[in-house]
Design a binder for these strands. Structure first.
Lengths: 394, 394
DNA sequence: GTGAAAGCGCTAACAA
DNA sequence: TTGTTAGCGCTTTCAC
């Protein structure tokens, strides 16, 4: 392991180019107001010396870090069981890189880590935070809000869902300052159920996810939206609580077959649950999709594609979510300063502005919230669309 | 998105405690040589003010950053297709956190990013780097070596495998300074094949991984180690090249059945490949394991466990690999300075030293290298053991 | 054992 | 347009 060596400083570059440190600094930071030939000489010197600015020194005076923390609350091992996390991170990374920001990854393993993370964020080491936390009663988001760091949440925070999560709703729930990005869980669920109806199915069941996560709640709500419209759709026996795992899917499917042997379609809260359901259906002698159609959620490869039969599912643009989160945070950060959004780095690596590639629709397309006590939508919620992917199972 | 506020400085703490900045600094950094009561007063002030040291200011003078970069060469989308990456990261994160280091994540998307990463690492923003790059001809590891940053590689670098990868071996291949951590791919493969033999199988095939990755090469070598010992084991038709994917596994399995209809066991280079093989075997009317036994590699959940039938496979301690990489890097870093390894942070959060929990065996337990021209083992290679997980398929 | 003072490398007023 | 100067918040000699 080679030892690091000392790097040339601004001073060295200035000397070499025969100018003052201030001039070098100007050139390095965009070169506004430096006459071309001089700037050229400086750039020359920079190249020759292989000068790279010392970020610590820079941060010390600018109070900026060009770094963003990504916080992932770890009890969410679900996050580790599928590529979700990795894709999200990839999207975030791309966007941050395009804006010359670094990604500081903070993984938490429980309460002890909460304090650590809060301390780190309060410590002013990063300009902002991207926070993933799926559970309604997770204290981490609250701590982070209190840390006073600009933050964008991944997934709709559940603070406003009174009567659903454990404990009272956080006062911050209606805070217009709360910004989050999520996929259209509810709309995707509706699309899935409508598709099953379009297939002529009438006894359509739902195997839910863990109901202390907003994604599970929203998918259930989407299911109910559609089922509520048809006679007999409100049969409570058709909804079985599960937990986003294959084992849970098996359990739930067995229970479902007990309750409703006449079921002819299943909408599973995610692909893993569907996997378990498929196995039980096969064991029960039912054919998929002939006897029972099955739809999953997530399009989690290779699970969905490699299932037997390949799973029809609802795809979300996971990478796009990550990208959008980063973009929103960065935009918020630059708004907070006096630089405008499009004042990108001089190397012209800025991306196109806006949500052009993400089809952000804002809000939840006219629908009111999930029957909770929250009347106003979360001011900063951005919902990305989902797509139904048809394979064999439905 | 709340705006960040200004934090209390050392100065403020000093004023509050009625001491000099220097004293506060000493207390904050371990408190050696400060009388107890004074130190207590300082700690009090720190707590009251919620003081957190400004890392930028500290780095500026210490030239340390307490930050480590994790570089993941992205063309390795395999890394994104399974939880491998996430687990590795978790191990790394735990270890870094225990030593109060931050994790800066650098994902690359191709050549353009190489320069960016090299620049960042050379820029002295981090104390060291953990680098993942699976392909033999990836230029990134070379660039990183040149950047002069202490580095530990994830997975055995292939630079020394002459005649295998594209291009000549890098001169650094035998550099005793090269440090890497890998699982015992070769030993795991041997265990798998021996297990199949123990089952009385005689026509044991191998579906390889992408052979420009050392993990695939090593697994193939392990297979050959064992097969070479028995008569007829060298039948080249029993080895089919594949690519670590289910689709590749299908292709390879079909080809294998064409070539050797009498095959009675398959060792697949990973679980995904095994998945494809299982499907083809089923389609061909063969029963698993009765007619053909199948073993995978990685114990990639949920793939292996949820396969039909559940897959016997070789498990590696992925999280342990990550942890060990971080530990080795951190140790190297502290060796490079004048502080000894066990001079941990004052809050007593240091972990136990050594590789106690990882069972590092060092080297490759007496076996010579993979038939390549490299006679001396890579000085810094640490190989973690693997475990055979018996499920139904073999 | 404690404090005073000198920078670390950079940016941002302000002068020229 | 360019240079000069004063710190940013911290650690670290060096006196006391």
């Amino acid at each position: 392991m080679t030892e690091a060596v000392s790097r040339p400083t601004l001073e060295a570059v200035a000397a070499r180019a025969g100018v003052s440190r201030a001039t070098v600094s100007r050139v390095v930071n965009g070169g506004d107001g430096v006459r071309a030939p001089l700037a050229e000489r400086v750039r020359q010197a920079v190249a020759e010396l292989g000068y790279v600015p010392n970020q610590a020194a820079r941060s010390l005076v600018t109070k900026r870090h060009d770094a963003v923390a990504v916080v992932i609350a770890e009890p969410e091992t679900r996050v580790f069981a599928d590529p979700f996390f990795a894709l999200q991170l990839r999207g975030i990374s791309k966007e941050l890189t395009a804006h010359d920001n670094q990604l500081v990854l903070l993984l938490t393993e429980g309460r002890d880590d909460h304090a650590r993370v809060a301390r780190y964020l309060s410590g002013g080491h990063v300009d902002g935070a991207l926070v993933f936390s799926l559970h309604l009663d997770d204290p981490l988001p609250g701590l982070i809000q209190d840390a006073g760091v600009p933050t964008v949440f991944g997934g709709r925070p559940g603070w406003g869902d009174e009567g659903r999560g454990a404990g009272p709703a956080r006062p911050t729930a209606k805070d217009p300052g709360v910004v989050y990005v999520d996929c259209d869980n509810r709309g995707g669920a509706r699309a899935a159920v409508r598709h099953l109806m379009g297939l002529g199915r009438t006894r359509i069941a739902h195997l839910t996810g863990v109901l202390d996560q907003t994604s599970a709640v929203d998918r259930l709500d989407g299911y109910r939206d559609v089922m509520g419209e048809v006679p007999g759709g409100n049969d409570p026996r058709l909804v079985v609580e599960s937990d986003f795992t294959p084992a849970g899917g098996e359990r739930a499917m067995r229970e479902l077959l007990d309750r409703c042997p006449d079921v002819d379609a299943v909408f599973a809260a995610n692909d893993l649950t569907a996997l378990g359901a498929l196995r039980v259906l096969r064991a029960s002698g039912r054919r998929v999709p002939d006897d029972v159609a099955v739809i999953g959620f997530d399009d989690m490869l290779p699970v969905a594609e490699e299932a037997d039969p390949p799973l029809t599912t609802v795809r979300q643009d996971i990478e796009g979510m990550g990208r959008l989160m980063a973009r929103l945070l960065l935009r918020g950060l630059s708004d907070g300063r006096d630089r405008t959004d499009d004042r990108d780095r001089p190397d012209g690596r800025g991306t196109t502005d806006g949500c052009d590639r993400t089809d952000a629709r804002g809000r939840t397309d006219g629908l009111d919230r999930t029957g909770s006590a929250v009347d106003e939508p979360h001011a900063g919620g951005v919902i990305l669309p989902t797509t139904l992917i048809r394979r064999v199972s439905a």
